[in-house]
């Protein structure tokens, strides 16, 4: 287990390898389909983003509503591939990390390498467990999107696995090959 703190420096990112289990601490931002579309369109028009995401991590999540006594509801990752169209632009802008689940496109993988960024997987279907590592949650942009708004989350020891590292190694390709039986 490697403890890391956001925002991520290139030094930290370069040390991480696929298969490394990390515990993320600090601030991360949520965004999924609708928020990505808006961020992408702002960047394309050369306009400022509503949140400074330079050096930051985006978590692809649409949590359940928080019960009155809780910070957030169940909050596991959604499928990252749906954001692939928008991700290279965000990485070129300065985003450093992503947390989600599942394969990324070739374009995303290239943008990760080009920008010395990193892609983590959180466990899909473990939203109750993951919610316990989130200690603060507030909407910082696009409240009209409801569960798809951009939230600023503070996390303590949020567990994730490095699945695409800054060298372009991909655990979704390497991992299954080791266990394939012809």
């Amino acid at each position: 287990m490697i403890k890391i703190t956001t925002p991520l420096s290139e030094e930290v990112i370069e040390k991480l390898q696929i298969g490394d289990e990390v515990l993320i601490n600090g601030v991360i931002f949520t965004a999924r389909d609708a928020a990505h579309k808006r961020l992408y369109e702002l960047l394309e028009k050369g306009e400022e983003l509503p949140v400074n995401l330079k050096g930051q991590i985006i978590y692809y999540v649409g949590p359940t509503p928080a019960k009155p006594d809780r910070v957030i509801g169940s909050a596991g990752p959604t499928t990252s591939g749906r954001m692939d169209k928008y991700t290279p632009r965000l990485l070129d802008y300065g985003l450093k990390g992503m947390i989600g689940k599942g394969l990324r496109s070739k374009e995303v993988q290239e943008a990760i390498v080009r920008n010395k960024a990193i892609y983590f997987a959180a466990i899909g279907g473990a939203g109750a467990l993951l919610s316990k590592t989130i200690v603060k949650s507030e909407v910082v942009a696009y409240p009209d999107l409801g569960p798809e708004a951009i939230y600023r989350l503070e996390v303590v020891d949020f567990p994730a696995i490095v699945v695409i590292d800054a060298r372009g190694q991909n655990l979704y390709e390497v991992g299954p090959k080791q266990f394939l039986k012809e």
Binding site: K67, S74, A75, A126, G127, A128
Partner: peptide, 18 residues
């Protein structure tokens, strides 16, 4: 972790998955 998650969801009345 997935097994632990199911236990947390049940005990704390949280959805197993978002």
């Amino acid at each position: 972790r997935v097994i632990e998650n199911a236990q947390i969801a049940k005990d704390e009345e949280l959805p197993i998955c978002q």
